[in-house]
């Protein structure tokens, strides 16, 4: 069984593991899987949290382990580290469109540092209008900000740039 484990196969399996709070985005598309190494002994995966205080981290680690176990990978080691750090720029294009469909405005790409200006006029995920305003950079989870769309007159959330 172990001999059939290949990197593309493992990546495919990891795409089945979703963010527990945003169940349409896989951990691979979210960008929190930073390294996958396959050896004779099993699979070693490096992960990094979106936010240090993210309460979903332990859940995600266990999910990765149990998903790979269910595919027949017996030895799964998951290491959580900050060597390769997560930034919202790491979210894949596929992940971004999934966020938008889920009703969460995707984070804008940014250079070097995040400034409050890039949070203004965030396109509304429902009507695409940029006639929107930032209500607060804090939301129901650490990774979300709250905006209001003046065009379709409703509040919406954004996966915030960090």
């Amino acid at each position: 069984m172990e001999s059939m484990i290949t990197l593309p196969k493992v990546m495919e399996w990891l795409r089945e593991v979703k963010d527990p709070e945003i169940p349409v985005v896989s951990l691979v598309d979210l960008g929190v899987i930073t390294d996958v190494a396959i050896s004779d002994n099993g699979v070693k995966i490096n992960m990094t949290p979106t936010f240090v205080g993210c309460p979903a981290m332990d859940y995600m680690v266990n999910d990765v382990k149990s998903t790979l176990n269910s595919k027949g990978v017996e030895n799964v080691e998951v290491i959580v580290s900050f060597d390769k750090q997560w930034s919202s720029n790491n979210i894949s294009e596929k992940g971004r469109s999934a966020l938008k469909e889920f009703g969460l405005a995707p984070p804008p790409h940014y250079d070097r540092i995040v400034d409050i200006e890039i949070l203004e006029q965030t396109p509304c995920p429902y009507c695409n209008s940029t006639n929107t305003e930032l209500k607060t950079p804090f939301g129901p989870t650490l990774c979300r900000a709250i905006h209001y769309c003046n065009n379709c007159k409703q509040a919406f959330e954004q996966f915030k740039p960090v």
Partner: peptide, 20 residues
């Protein structure tokens, strides 16, 4: 409400940071 959420979020960040 927004300030309630802001202080709660910052609390969560800080306690998570202390844990690390």
């Amino acid at each position: 409400l927004e300030e309630d959420i802001a202080f709660a979020s910052m609390a969560q960040d800080k306690v998570g940071q202390s844990y690390t």
